[in-house]
Design a protein around this nucleic acid. Structure first.
Lengths: 208, 208
DNA sequence: CCACACTTGCCTTCTGATCGGTAGGTAGGT
DNA sequence: ACCTACCTACCGATCAGAAGGCAAGTGTGG
């Protein structure tokens, strides 16, 4: 195993940009591997190999495995935020008709959905490295939902006798749980169909 | 660290029974550690140390780490089956009033709930060691729910225009998802309350 | 009733692989 | 000259697991 590891793949490019590109390549490889084998089950060597770099070369960019995890998670999170905003939109019941956007996004890149499912489970306890990130993520998501539902209530779309915090927890639970079943058993569980039914059910429940 | 490791703790007991007891001790320790650090994040040495046995002593009983995982999962599964039966009972809407049994069971031993949440995530892909187990578990659970709901429909408790398979997926998703949120954030999410609301919501949706 | 073979429990010791991470160097662009 | 990228080489720790032995309980034939 003394493969010469072709050098200077980016020879003609600015040094600075080469670094940025490498970082992205590493993040993408790490996303894929963390998603399928989990954070703990993935070695730096494996990620490095996939990028075509040594393990030390990888650490040159990210310093430690945990920093790499943070980078992966932050990278993914940015992309998510926009989508969430688009779905929740101006609030009210309309968002339940836009869940197909989320479904399409998730099915298109199943590896990313899997990454999050795995990482949440790996970080349930406070001492785990990304626990606080996910804690915050869920709280933020639930409170965004509460706000959106309140909006809908103000406009008279949504009944006044429902506990919006409780409903938000159940919405998130339903989305999460369906995704898990779909990831585990894509032949039996159709995510798009599942989200559609879930949205319809909440609309019936909440409609004024 | 040359602690003499007190021998013959079970000196006066039949050899056969000592083995059975040890196995159980190991399964319990493994359950706890797999639950908090995951399968991949837990070393045999850690489990062995907690039981007060060497790593080799542990492998004497289970042969390999993967066999130990199977034993842990099977052990837990037996206990579950009874509870599931008790809740689903004779079918129909009544089961939604019995979800507090599940909630109590889960909250009483949070480590066990966590074990399953972590293991499911670690076994989403077909090549993972316990993938088939969880695939089967979810399919069985959903089909048990379908049967129970059909029963309720036959007795006229449940409306005839609902897709029972879809509802079953959503019930499982809701339970699972709420559990995850509770494990991650027990201060903000009350599992017992959550299950109660979930059950009430499904009853409203399904009632004939 | 007892000697001997066998089984079971569990030990110590070891192995090769892999883990995350450090140190120090070189090449090339700025 | 200095910075960035990335290398080789190495570190100690930990991983799952195999090998082989000793001690104690168990079943069996004499």
């Amino acid at each position: 195993m003394t493969a010469p590891l072709e050098r200077k793949r980016h020879a003609s490019v600015h040094t600075l940009e080469r670094g940025r590109v490498r970082r992205l390549e590493i993040i993408e490889a790490a996303t894929e591997l963390f998603g399928s084998a989990g954070y703990r089950g993935t070695g730096l060597a494996g990620i490095a190999a996939q990028v075509g770099v040594t393990q030390a070369g990888l650490l040159h960019h990210f310093g430690s495995k945990e920093k790499l995890l943070e980078a992966v998670v932050a990278h993914r999170s940015e992309q998510d935020a926009a989508l969430i905003d688009e779905i929740i939109g101006t609030g009210g019941l309309g968002m339940f008709d836009r869940l197909h956007l989320l479904a399409r996004h998730n099915t298109k890149r199943a590896g990313l959905s899997q990454l999050f499912t795995v990482l949440v489970a790996e970080n349930l306890l406070p001492e785990h490295p990304a626990h606080d990130f996910f804690l915050d993520r869920y709280r933020t998501l639930r409170s965004a939902l509460v706000t959106a539902l309140k909006d809908g209530r103000k406009r008279g779309e949504i009944r006044k006798d429902v506990d919006l915090k409780a409903v938000s927890r159940r919405i998130v639970a339903g989305l999460d749980g369906l995704q898990t079943q779909w990831l585990l058993d894509p032949d039996e569980v159709d995510l798009i169909e599942g989200y559609k039914e879930l949205g319809a059910s909440f609309k019936r429940e909440l409609r004024a």
